[in-house]
């Protein structure tokens, strides 16, 4: 692999930017709101799954559930990529904020 020069590398060290920024602001009007946001919707919460209680084990460097063991298959949610509209418990999205 060709290693980028430091100048190029500085342009890009993508972070998740603190995940999504919370906002209570309501949508603006049709002339100021991006067209594609007409199709924004809160996903169906009936398909969502809660993330089980867990903690980060600094020795093993993985997350463990309080009832024991590794969180497997997307944190045991089994429906991992279904957000439920909650801003405090959005399971990881297949395609979300990455940089």
């Amino acid at each position: 692999m060709t290693i980028p020069t430091p100048e190029r590398a500085l342009e890009a060290f993508p972070l998740s930017a603190g995940r999504l920024s919370y906002s209570a602001e309501e949508p603006s009007g049709p002339r100021t709101r991006p067209f594609v946001l007409r199709f924004a919707r809160t996903p169906d919460s009936t398909g969502a799954a809660d993330i089980p209680a867990h903690f980060y084990d600094t020795d093993r460097q993985v997350n463990l559930s309080y009832d024991g063991g590794l969180l497997t298959c997307m944190a045991n949610t089994h429906s991992p990529t279904v957000p439920d509209g909650s801003t405090t418990n959005p399971p990881p999205l297949d395609e979300g904020p990455k940089d």
Binding site: L20, S21, Y22, S23, A24, E25, E26, P27, V36, L37, F39, A40, R41, T42, P43, P83, D84, G85, S86, T87, P90, L93, E95, G96, P97
Partner: peptide
């Protein structure tokens, strides 16, 4: 495709 507005997480 995701944002939070109106206090809710939304996806497009």
């Amino acid at each position: 495709p995701v944002l939070i507005e109106d206090g809710r997480l939304k996806a497009v």
